[in-house]
């Protein structure tokens, strides 16, 4: 195994982690499985694509001489995708949460609604933009550099660093801010939270926007490797879901651990000659099935127990 592979694995882990943590966080705080996460991903991907088309020439005009045009464009596209993801989060909040959150059977019904939203968004994107794949400009750097004698791709390193920083910030914020406290309070006892003046409806909105934004970020980062298309969200959604499961739904550390594991497995499977890319999903699912058979609550359960 060379360093390129390790970096590639970490790169995948970063993106899947963004998706899985979003799903896990939403499940633990709001109590819904967000099947529309893939739609958020695709939607944000398209938003980033159009932002790149619009802002690309502008950036070249204004900043082309200084050499800052690429980083500026990257930041801009990233921001647009994050905003688009958050916006989609608001839509999910309005449709699937606000209307039925205190009604009967909420978990199943919200799952159905988000699933329907996912299907509808994919179809609408297909309708509006056609099935062609769109390529985002390579704004996160191109080429490779040598480190300790091994060549490493720049964009992957940028992705890993950006994700780690952002996720770290978010997790620290959740741990220490008033909002984070509010989210955990609602999660543990909704009525008690109401008696403290915390409205579960007002708490759910930022968390939905946050998870949407994470999916948007994942969309931009992954679009460096994979093209933007209406169905682009399906694979990340399934991977995110399974990683969230592997980590134990609702456990953020579990999701991180699961993402790293799955990233390594995917990188390794791709590299082993007789398995190859086609078997990636197969190997992953088999691995997850095995883990879940041994630990029905996922890795998160393991972490919980060791902490006790």
């Amino acid at each position: 195994m060379d360093a390129g592979l390790i970096v590639y694995a970490l790169y995948l882990a970063a993106i899947y982690g963004l998706m899985a943590i979003g799903i896990s966080l939403l499940w633990s705080s709001v109590g819904m499985v967000n099947m529309a996460h893939g739609a958020t991903f695709a939607f944000a991907g398209y938003a980033a694509y159009f932002a790149a088309i619009w802002a690309g020439p502008l950036a070249k005009d204004w900043l082309g001489a200084t050499g800052w045009s690429q980083p500026a464009l990257a930041v801009f596209i990233g921001l647009v995708a994050i905003c688009a993801g958050a916006l989609f989060g608001v839509v999910i909040y309005l449709v699937a949460y606000l209307t039925i959150h205190d009604k009967q059977n909420f978990p199943v019904r919200s799952l159905i609604i988000t699933l329907a939203l996912n299907l509808a968004t994919v179809q609408m994107l297909l309708w509006a933009f056609g099935p062609q794949q769109k390529a985002l400009p390579r704004v996160f750097g191109v080429g490779r550099f040598d480190w300790l004698g091994m060549s490493i791709r720049v964009d992957q390193v940028v992705t890993i660093v950006a994700t780690t920083l952002l996720l770290g910030t978010v997790l620290v914020w959740l741990r220490h801010s008033r909002r984070g406290l509010e989210i955990r309070a609602v999660m543990q006892n909704a009525e008690g939270a109401a008696l403290c003046g915390i409205s579960s409806r007002k708490t759910a909105l930022p968390i939905m926007m946050l998870t949407g934004a994470l999916a948007g970020l994942a969309a931009v980062l992954l679009s460096q490797n994979v093209f933007v298309s209406p169905t682009a969200g399906v694979t990340p959604l399934i991977k995110g879901l399974t990683i969230a499961l592997l980590g134990g739904l609702g456990s953020v550390p579990g999701a991180v651990a699961g993402a790293v594991l799955i990233g390594f497995i995917e990188a390794a499977t791709g590299a082993i000659p007789f398995l190859g890319q086609r078997y990636v999903l197969f190997v992953q699912f088999t691995f997850i099935v095995c883990v879940l058979l041994i630990r029905p609550r996922g890795l998160g359960g393991l972490l919980d127990e060791t902490r006790e």
Partner: peptide
């Protein structure tokens, strides 16, 4: 209000 039987958040 302090509810009957403590509406508490066990994990905080």
């Amino acid at each position: 209000m302090t509810p009957q039987g403590d509406a508490i958040f066990p994990g905080l």
